[in-house]
Write a protein that binds this DNA or RNA. Structure first.
Lengths: 157, 157
DNA sequence: GCGCGTTAGTTGACGGAACAACCAACCTCC
DNA sequence: GGAGGTTGGTTGTTCCGTCAACTAACGCGC
């Protein structure tokens, strides 16, 4: 194993990034659970559906957009269905496939949860940075995603 | 709820940051599990102990350095102890406290895991960025941590 | 020296996530 | 037109994290 160590600056950046990556999901989850009874991941799933045409997506497509494995998504969608936020129906064109579609109740849930979520994002991230830094962050994250997610599943426009 | 929405640039940065935060832990966990049978968090715990004087830390101190709740740490340390990587012994000065100490086997485990881990960090993060971006990343992460971790538990030097 | 509140840590129950095994429908190629 | 392989999803197990409840020890005030 070719062990090139990290220099002072790199180590500093890395340690801080790890801390952020460790803390941020918890902060998001906490607020959403408290105010809306949703996991951040569940919210994300609902949000992706809400943006899709007919509020419908195939499970596979939804899994890619949310970076979930299919088993994980399957479980989550089942729970969301039990809560009446999502409906599952077989895909007419492909007998193997399942379409997940956002119900009216699910739509309402997203709409209700969004403001609080956005406020949290502002408070924890956006407002902590200068406008210039927001731009830098986008570029940095983009560069990282080219390594972490080469196929670009999570950055479809 | 005061709903100031995000503009184009902010949204872009946010979406990408979320993707990174979602993907990075998985990438780290995957490599460490595969090559060393350790969670990233377990590795981090062992690493913190390896840097401490006498390879020993009080549970509370260790929890702060790793941003873990005490229950979480307690479970993890128990598992590590069962694997012989860590030892727990009552603190002489304070009857309530427990000291976690890294065994020789634990030390060997960290030493063995470190090169592969560093290589992963390089590959996924550091090498994807220009030197300037590494500096920017440190500043950005620092700014976020002031919101996410006001008491600075995770950024003791 | 004895209550009372606080601090340190453990334990148990429960929910979510990864992984592997599995089933069913599609495809294609002979 | 059927066999072999691939793709799309679900189910079950196991493990980890969180939360709440609990125990034990400290320390202050009297």
């Amino acid at each position: 194993m070719d062990t090139e160590w990290l220099d002072e600056t790199q180590l500093d950046a890395w340690v801080k990034l790890v801390a952020v990556v460790e803390l941020l999901p918890g902060a998001l989850d906490h607020q959403l659970r408290r105010d809306s009874g949703l996991t951040h991941f569940e919210y994300f799933v609902l949000a992706m559906l809400s943006e899709a045409s007919d509020r419908t997506l195939r499970m596979t497509a939804l899994a890619q957009r949310t970076n979930a494995t299919l088993p994980r998504l399957s479980h989550v969608v089942r729970r969301l269905e039990e809560r009446g936020l999502v409906e599952r129906r077989p895909c007419p064109e492909d007998g193997r496939a399942t379409n997940a579609l956002l119900t009216d109740a699910g739509w309402a849930e997203v709409v209700a949860a969004a403001p609080g979520h956005v406020a949290t994002v502002r408070r924890h991230v956006i407002d902590a940075l200068t406008p210039a830094q927001v731009g830098q962050l986008a570029e940095i994250a983009e560069a990282l995603l080219e390594r972490l997610d080469p196929d670009g599943h999570m950055r479809r426009r």
